[in-house]
Design a protein around this nucleic acid. Structure first.
Length: 542
RNA sequence: GCGGGUGUAGCUUAGUGGUAAAGCCCCAGCCUUCCAAGCUGGUCAUGUGGGUUCGAUUCCCAUCACCCGCUCCA
């Protein structure tokens, strides 16, 4: 049984494990569906992604100057909030209603239905009784039930009126005898499963005693923590609109189908900005963030051939949003021409702040109004706190609009890993070309920035190399390796994505020069140790 | 959630109802003055749990994980 050539994705997964980028979670116990761990090199890669993002969005941000493409200067600040928040946060955010359904599956048709949306009616013919269901509009449902029952009982159209109907149409929720239920797309009765709770939010218990009051959720996104702290940040930090609040952290979603390595997982890390601005300027800020975020990926090495900016069509948008764009990458596990989302940039209007003020807004209302429950009161009460903003100069009071660039840290790390994976050819010691695996990471993202290698393990070279290693290590992550032929060590570093090798030879001992070998081109340059360090630092900083 | 496939060392593979094989990697030496496969030695494996059997890595069942397709994707 000879297998075909492994796919690029299989090679990346294999390399990830072999070199310590990404491991299956809990592997010694057989693994955990959709969970992955970052190994020694992977943790550096992902940290570099997050740190580059944080530096570019927050710590290095120029609060005073006007950045290219921006209409004015703006401030950026950060936040780190708890993963478990007040359950009302998720009711007002809309996650509770959207993520929380009772579902039934049909074993015959393999279709899945919302338990509360499935309606039917009891029908009887001769000795057979069945609860026929159908997916139909209320005006047409009686006709649909009749058609389903007629087919089930094997009757002709003219014999329809022989079907006896018992009671009026009702929701499946009122029916206990599932074995007598005919599914909307089934031929036989009794193919529907018991209703099962379908909850995309992770539930947990707050406190050691478990009861209904102690139920809490693990956050499904970091964004809500920013919205609920909006007033705190404004009151404590002297920021003025426009400004952004950034946060990096873990989020949890019970994805139905974890798939594709670390792309779709249940525990993941987000890098989100909520950018608050005046409603009149929000469209320009939306365009600004969309373009800036796209360029961020391009500047860190993703090829423009593999990256697209996809603007959502107007019919895809929540109507309160006036723009949403996805930054998508052509991951190797996807079919040709398909892309997977790295980041979404959404214009969210004032939906979130108002929902946390007034109560959950009905996303289908226009203009936005608080969603009411059956008793005519708000379905989910808001905080009642005033989350509007008063401009200190104009004295205008308004609820800011929000632009939300929301990125996946794991997805970004995976995209950079996939983009970096390259097979090319390099000469061996006899000058014959051999295949080479090299990870062409941007130096800023590479787990190790350089390796320090004594050319041979004698004549004082190891001692000198260790000295240089300690000097460089104060500035950035460096690896020391003395084992085996130097060519072998170069290849090992190529496979780990280390952009530079500093090689110590006989000359180093007398004149403090080394060779600096560049990973992608394999070009070597003879430099002073200080110059080599500077060259590496410049490559990282760019 | 459904259907199909796969699961043997860190990786890639071989093989068998009766002692599990190899290459690469890795480790310890030796050799080596700039791009992997010179020498010697060494570590390490049948996903998990049952069943059949004198004996199971092999056959059967279940389970877990991964891959492909469907479904889902705020």
């Amino acid at each position: 049984m000879s297998n075909p050539e492994p796919s690029v994705m299989q090679k990346i997964v294999s390399l990830s494990k072999r070199r310590g980028f990404i491991f299956q979670s809990s592997e010694i116990y057989g693994g955990m569906n959709g969970c992955w761990d970052y190994g020694p090199l992977g943790v550096e890669l992902k940290r570099n992604v997050k740190e580059a993002w944080w530096a570019d969005m927050v710590s290095r941000h120029d609060d005073i100057g006007v950045l290219p493409g921006a209409q004015s200067s703006f401030e950026m600040t950060g936040l780190d909030c708890s993963i478990i928040m007040h359950p009302q946060v998720w009711r007002c955010s809309g996650h509770h209603d959207l993520f929380h359904d009772m579902m039934v599956d049909c074993k015959e048709s393999k279709k899945r239905y919302r338990h509360d949306q499935l309606r039917g009616r009891w029908a009887e013919y001769r000795d057979k009784k069945v609860f026929v269901t159908a997916m139909a509009d209320p005006e047409e449902e009686d006709e649909a039930f009749t058609a389903r029952a007629q087919k089930f009982f094997g009757l002709r159209a003219k014999d329809r009126d022989q079907i006896k109907w018992d009671g009026s149409a009702c929701s499946l929720e009122t029916i206990d005898e599932l074995e007598l239920v005919l599914g909307p797309d089934a031929k036989d009765a009794g193919t529907l499963t018991e209703p099962r709770e379908f909850n995309l939010m992770f539930k947990t218990q707050m406190g050691a005693l478990h009861n209904d009051d102690s139920m809490a959720y693990l956050r499904p996104e970091t964004a809500q923590g920013i919205f609920v702290n909006f007033k705190n940040v404004v009151d404590s930090s002297r920021v003025k609109i426009p400004f952004g609040i950034a946060q990096v952290g873990k989020s949890f979603r019970n994805e139905i189908t974890p798939r594709n390595f670390t792309f779709r997982v249940r525990e993941f890390e987000q890098m989100e900005v909520e950018f608050f601005c005046h409603p009149d300027t929000s469209q320009d800020w939306y365009s600004y963030w969309r373009d800036r975020r796209m360029n961020w990926y391009l500047n860190h090495g993703l090829s423009s051939e593999n990256l697209i900016l996809r603007e959502h069509h107007s019919d895809e948008l929540s109507h309160y949003s006036t723009g949403t764009a996805d930054i998508e990458y052509a991951f190797p596990f996807l079919p040709e021409g398909e892309y997977g989302e790295l980041e979404g940039i959404a214009h969210r209007g004032d939906f979130d702040l108002r929902s946390h003020m007034e109560g959950k807004l009905d996303p289908n209302s226009k203009p936005l109004e608080v969603q009411l429950g059956e008793n005519g009161k708000p379905l989910w009460k808001g905080s009642g706190k005033d989350l509007s903003y008063r401009d200190p100069v104009s004295n205008e009071k308004f609820i800011p609009h929000v632009i939300e660039p929301s990125a996946g840290a794991d997805r970004a790390a995976l995209a950079f890993l996939c983009e970096a994976y390259t097979e090319d050819n390099a000469p061996d010691d006899k000058g014959e070309m051999q295949s080479r695996v090299v990870l062409k990471f941007h130096p800023r993202l590479a787990p190790m920035k350089a390796a320090v290698l004594p050319l041979v393990k004698k004549d004082g070279m190891p001692e000198k190399a260790q000295e240089i290693y300690r000097e460089l290590k104060r500035k950035f992550p460096v690896f020391y390796d003395v084992k085996g032929a130097v060519g072998r060590r170069y290849r090992r570093m190529d496979e780990a994505g280390t952009p530079f090798c500093v090689t110590v030879d006989g000359e180093t001992l007398s004149d403090e020069t080394v060779t600096l070998r560049e990973r992608d081109s394999m070009v070597q340059t003879r430099l002073k140790v200080d110059e080599a360090m500077q060259a590496i630092q410049e490559a990282i900083d760019c």
